[in-house]
Simulated scan of single mutants.
Amino acid sequence: MFRPVPVPVLPPSTALADLATAGEHHAWLAGTTGVFTSRPTAPLVLRWTGETWQVEPLPELPAPASLSGVSAAAPDDVWAVGNSDGRPLLLHYDGTTWDIVPTPRITWAKAVAATGDDVHVVGTGPDTLHYDGTAWRLRTALSSARESLQTITAAGPHDLWAGGGGLAGAGPATYEYPVLVHWDGHAWTEVTGPRTERGHVARLAATTPDDIWLGHVRDTDGLRVHRWDGEQWTSVPAPRDTGRLSVHGVAAGWTWGVRAGHRSFETRPAFHRWTGDRWTTVALPDDLARASASHVGLATTGTTTWAYLKTAAGVHVLRHTAP
């Protein structure tokens, strides 16, 4: 069962975006405040101290900004990515303070993956950003200006996967197709993903080079889960739940989303854990299980799993420890 942990009171305008872990006792939650208000948006990072979640002091920015992703290579090497004033915003945590890191420009940064000295940032354009421990460089990952990336995961320093989608056709005949690329330490190469002709890759998560989880969205069918075993992709059966289930994301051995009753528009949080041959619903405290939720997400180390969600009462963070 998920159990809540203390969280500071955050503004109702808070939007949660991503969560990262570094071992069993370190985690960071990234988001944005001031969303849909007259105030400028500002980046937000929460850090787990071992006892509670606290708001991190971030550098002041001259323009509105938002965060969309976070990745932790180590407790003293954490990267958060977003956008400010039409260019990428990259923040780095060295275990003590957060600093702004200048980078080349790409269009709308979406996600980041950090592994040791290497850091990769993907976004809505053909180019990615790569830090090799010495300097930042632009790396071209896509062949078409109508393609973009929105998710990235690392199975190792020289084994990364990134996914997104592209547009084909014109006018009413326009349709979306999935895009999947792989980094081998030298270059990005387009690779064949699961046999899906339409939609886009919404989420990737890796544990080892032989265990990659992929969430694929096709039109209005919702998210479908696929798994790479080092040789081929296989489709993982969708979780079963009461009412209308909408799966939003996938992690290694987990999914998250919301469910709604047949005659209700209220969405309840839903988390499922893979037991080897089926999905099992993971229980929430009664008050959260009954609450309408949004901004649902999750990250796992394999032993400790953190989940977050937002209700009318505010932001909630929960922890699940495997038996």
Rank of each mutant, 00 (worst) to 15 (best):
M1R: 11
V9Q: 14
P11A: 02
A22I: 01
G23L: 07
E24R: 13
G31D: 03
P40F: 01
L46Y: 09
R47F: 10
P59M: 00
E60M: 11
E60V: 08
L61E: 07
A63W: 04
V70I: 15
A73V: 09
A73P: 05
D77A: 12
D77N: 13
V78R: 08
W79T: 00
A80G: 07
G82M: 11
D85H: 14
G86M: 08
L89I: 03
L89H: 02
D94W: 08
D94Q: 10
G95C: 09
T97W: 08
T97F: 03
V101Y: 03
T103W: 05
R105Q: 13
V112K: 09
D117E: 14
H120E: 05
V121K: 03
V122R: 04
G123A: 07
G125I: 00
P126A: 09
D127H: 12
T128I: 02
L129T: 10
L129A: 11
Y131H: 15
W136T: 14
L138M: 07
S143T: 15
I152R: 04
G156K: 07
P157S: 13
L160K: 05
L160C: 00
G169K: 14
G169Y: 14
A170C: 01
P172Q: 04
A173S: 15
T174K: 13
P178T: 07
L180V: 00
A187K: 15
V191P: 04
G193Y: 03
T196Q: 13
R198D: 11
G199I: 07
H200K: 12
V201L: 14
L204E: 11
L204W: 11
A205L: 01
T208L: 06
P209E: 02
P209V: 03
D210G: 15
D210P: 01
I212W: 00
I212V: 15
V217T: 09
V217K: 03
V217Y: 10
R218F: 04
D219M: 05
V225T: 15
G230K: 08
G230H: 04
E231C: 06
S235C: 13
P237E: 06
T242H: 13
V247Q: 02
G249A: 15
A252M: 01
T255G: 01
G257K: 06
G257W: 09
R259K: 12
R263E: 15
S264T: 06
F265L: 14
T267Y: 13
R273T: 05
G276S: 11
W279C: 12
P285W: 00
S292N: 11
A293C: 11
H295G: 10
V296Q: 05
L298T: 10
G302D: 06
T303S: 08
T303W: 05
Y308S: 06
G314T: 04
R319M: 15
A322V: 10
P323F: 06
